[in-house]
Computed example of a mutant assay.
Amino acid sequence: MLVKMLHDKGVRSDHCYDAGLASIGLSIVSWVVSIQAEDAGVSRADRWGIFVGEWAPTFFALGLALRQYED
């Protein structure tokens, strides 16, 4: 089971929650950097922001699963 393997490797639910929050912040940063650094326009920056922002729900779901496993 993935959750057991992660727990055995030392990953805790708090780590996943922190990663989820970090991915939200990274999504905003990647959007701003893409707007400023590339001439591709807002649509490309939106794609970068959405791509990175999609990681957050996965990290939060893993955090919930690990929290249940820890309890």
Rank of each mutant, 00 (worst) to 15 (best):
P57K: 12
A19V: 06
A40K: 09
W55T: 10
A22C: 00
S23P: 01
Q68T: 07
I35P: 01
I28P: 04
C16K: 00
V32P: 02
S27Y: 04
G41P: 07
R67P: 08
D8I: 05
L2I: 10
R44V: 06
M5S: 13
R12V: 06
F60W: 13
R67A: 14
S23Y: 01
G25H: 03
L21A: 14
A19K: 05
P57C: 05
L6Q: 00
P57W: 09
W55L: 15
S30E: 05
W31D: 06
D14N: 14
V29P: 09
W48Y: 13
D18M: 10
W31I: 03
G41Q: 07
L62D: 02
R12D: 02
Q68P: 01
V29T: 12
S43W: 07
H15R: 10
Q68F: 13
M5F: 03
D18G: 09
P57E: 12
I28H: 07
L21C: 12
L62F: 07
I28R: 10
S34I: 09
D39E: 14
D46T: 10
A22M: 06
V42F: 15
L64C: 11
Y17Q: 06
G49S: 09
G53Y: 04
K4V: 05
W31K: 06
D39N: 12
Q36K: 11
S34L: 11
L2S: 09
G63N: 01
S30P: 07
V33P: 01
L64D: 14
W48A: 02
T58D: 03
E70G: 14
E70Y: 12
G10Y: 06
A40Y: 08
G49N: 13
T58I: 13
Q68N: 10
E70V: 00
L64K: 12
D18K: 14
M5E: 15
G49Y: 02
V32W: 10
H7S: 08
Q68W: 14
V32R: 10
I28D: 03
E38P: 02
S27F: 04
V29Y: 13
L66H: 01
L21N: 11
I24N: 04
G25D: 01
P57M: 07
D71Y: 10
S43K: 05
L6C: 04
C16N: 02
Y69S: 03
R12H: 10
M1I: 10
H15F: 14
G63Q: 02
K4N: 08
I24T: 09
G63A: 02
A56W: 08
D18F: 10
D14Y: 11
I28C: 09
G10V: 08
E70Q: 09
G49C: 11
L21D: 07
W48L: 10
G41T: 03
H7D: 08
S13T: 09
E70R: 05
R44F: 02
A37S: 05
L6P: 07
R67Q: 15
S30T: 14
D46C: 11
L6N: 08
G10I: 05
